[in-house]
Simulated assay, not measured.
Amino acid sequence: MEDGLNVSVRFVLYLDLTLLAGLPLIGIVGFHRYAHQVATAIRLRGLLIALAGIGLALSLCHMVMLAMVMSGASEITELGRHVFSMIITTTDAGIAWAVRMVALMLIVLLALYGRVRSAVQLKCGAALGFVSLATVAWSGHGAMHEGALRYLHFTADIVHLIAAAGWIGALVTFSLLLRPSQLASSAQLRLLHQGLAGFAWIGTIIVLALVVTGVANYCLIAGVQLSGLLSTQYGLLLLGKLGLFVLMLSLAAANRYHLTPMLERGMATGQASVALPGLRRSLVIETGAAILILAAIAWLGTLDPSQGLTPQLP
């Protein structure tokens, strides 16, 4: 029961922080000078406030769970202020948690009192989102190492998380732009096409980053070997995650080389609506696969990779 709750909190927190970083990121790099239009279309201000608020609440829950594990307490009432003070001031995970809380509160303030449609405010929001998401690395398997290897693993984890945020942020942004209410004019269709076409080169960089850092993370955890992948829970989850990644890659390729050109041709002939149902279906499936991958990551983070996957660290 406790393990299930831990995985659930981690999963929702990962999804929340991924969107918090990814939504402003895709507006900046995928739409360039049209970023403010996208921010308005997807109601980014409200999304940032909601996501940051949820992130704060989930982070508090996660800290309580961490405190119970580290103190050995069986009830929340057994936790004293000194336990939280010790974790936040003397452990890397606690310091990372405190940094995340500050970043999330700054996002709320930025969204409430700033102009998230401006390029500077969007960049600030994205930067704070990156910081909050990067802190997740300190609750992962990177903490199993010491010295330089520890920070190499953290770096790989952070790059992996940011690349994933870019991809998932793009999927959610395109899905929101594909709502019928957002496609009432040719200008809105051009905005959608601009994002889909602009994501082509960004997607290539994201895929390369995910592959390189994914391989690096596996090698840092299990070494250069494949034993145990089919005989352990950790290995099977890892293979499931890889299968979902391949599915996402296939759908992204179909979007890039078939559906986006179809939309462009339809816009030229006044029949853009022909391509829209296919795009919606593809994005729904791809987003669903991404959510399942985040669930797998949350689960993997609670498992001991040494059980069946013997580390062979350099």
Rank of each mutant, 00 (worst) to 15 (best):
R43C: 02
A93D: 11
H36Q: 08
A41K: 03
H32C: 03
G55P: 08
A98C: 05
L106E: 03
S71L: 12
G46V: 10
I95K: 06
V102D: 07
M68Q: 10
H82Q: 15
L79D: 02
H82Y: 06
R115E: 08
L58A: 14
I107K: 05
Y34T: 12
P24I: 08
G53A: 03
G94C: 07
R117M: 14
I26H: 00
Y113I: 13
R115N: 13
I87G: 06
V69G: 10
A93G: 04
L51S: 07
L25M: 10
A41F: 02
A41V: 07
V108D: 05
G30F: 00
C61E: 11
I88W: 02
S59F: 05
S118H: 15
M68W: 11
I87Y: 04
R81I: 10
M68E: 06
M70E: 15
G27K: 01
I87E: 04
M86P: 01
R33I: 05
V64M: 13
A103Y: 00
A39S: 13
P24K: 02
V99P: 00
Q37D: 06
M105F: 12
T40E: 09
G114K: 09
A73S: 14
V120F: 10
F31L: 09
L60A: 15
L44G: 02
M65I: 15
L104T: 02
A98N: 02
M65A: 12
A73G: 11
R81E: 08
A111Y: 04
H62Y: 14
H32G: 05
R100A: 01
Y34L: 14
L66T: 11
S59H: 05
W97Y: 10
V69K: 15
Y34K: 13
L104V: 06
W97N: 02
A52G: 09
V99N: 03
D92C: 04
H82P: 00
M65W: 11
V64S: 03
R43F: 09
S74W: 14
I76D: 07
M63Q: 13
I42Y: 02
R117C: 07
A39Q: 00
R45L: 05
L79M: 05
L58Q: 06
H62L: 11
R81T: 15
R115W: 13
A39F: 04
E75L: 14
I87R: 04
S74Q: 14
G46M: 07
I28F: 04
V64N: 08
L47S: 08
I107C: 06
A52P: 03
R115P: 02
I95F: 10
